[in-house]
């Protein structure tokens, strides 16, 4: 099975903030890491390779420093890393990002399966996985929590939803987005990290994947982020309830019920 795992480099979240003066996102100084959800996709790719043989390729679109995300994937055991990097990709929204990634998957060629994380913790949209599937014209299953079985031409997987889960059979090639329940990602060993640091990471430009200029970057992005604000401050004051348990319960349950929260 030839598997491409899409990984995004993201800022380590808890440190992201808005500069109160410029109202812009402060992310320069912040450490970057592989999108945590993508570690599960990498791990699942490795496990599928262990079960069924084949190759796992990690693919990331981003600036040159996104190579560090690929090196992390390499240290976990993927066979090779591909960095899709070109100034022309700058400003891509999920439409353009998924288009570029789909082109890269086609460039890799003969791919059976694309694995994505559930969502990226910065953009938080969860749109890129289904977007890749649409651009490739492949079937998709999202929020996958278990891969039961694989045949030559299809996979049987469990996908989650708010009410429970479905067991579905999906033809290959396909795109899956995976959730945390699917596995526990391995922690790389020192030896493998050292090797990964020296490994070659191939860089692909927009031309190399034959991405049409009108479909990538800002020009290829239908959406525009027009404003970024800090979240509104926590509203209101603390209401202290120190009556009898019954009184307190009545008051609290009433408040929650007014907002349909119980």
């Amino acid at each position: 099975m030839k598997i491409v795992v899409c990984i995004k480099q993201v800022p380590a979240t808890h440190e992201v903030s808005i500069d109160p003066e410029t109202k812009r996102l402060k992310r320069e100084s912040v450490e970057a890491e592989v999108n945590p959800f993508d570690l599960y996709a990498i791990e699942e790719g490795l496990r599928l390779r262990e079960r069924f043989g084949g190759e796992v390729v990690a693919l990331s679109m981003g600036p040159p420093q996104a190579q560090w995300a690929l090196r992390e994937a390499l240290s976990m055991g993927v066979d090779r890393g591909l960095l899709l990097s070109d100034k022309a990709f700058a400003g891509s929204d999920t439409w353009a990002t998924s288009y570029a990634l789909a082109r890269a998957v086609e460039t890799v060629g003969a791919v059976d399966l694309v694995l994505c994380g559930k969502q990226a913790i910065d953009g938080d949209t969860a749109q890129v996985g289904p977007g890749i599937a649409a651009h490739l014209g492949w079937p998709q299953a999202t929020y996958v929590s278990h891969v039961q079985d694989a045949g030559a031409k299809h996979l049987t997987v469990t996908r989650m939803n708010e009410d429970g889960h479905d067991v579905v059979q999906i033809d290959l090639p396909a795109v899956l987005t995976v959730v945390k329940d699917i596995n526990t990602p391995r922690v790389p060993k020192l030896r493998d990290c050292r090797t990964a640091l020296r490994a070659e990471v191939a860089v692909l430009t927009a031309d190399a994947v034959r991405a049409e200029p009108a479909r990538i970057g800002l020009d290829g992005s239908p959406t525009r982020v027009v404003k970024i604000n800090p979240p509104p401050p926590r509203g209101g004051k603390t209401l202290v309830l120190d009556g009898s348990p019954a009184e307190t319960a009545r008051r609290l349950v009433h408040e929650l019920r007014m907002k349909s929260l119980v």
Partner: peptide, 18 residues
């Protein structure tokens, strides 16, 4: 979140999440 991103690509439209 599974359905609409696919449709947004197919109809060439912008989609804002969540």
């Amino acid at each position: 979140r599974a359905l609409i991103p696919r449709v947004a690509v197919l109809t060439n439209s912008g989609l804002t999440a969540d």
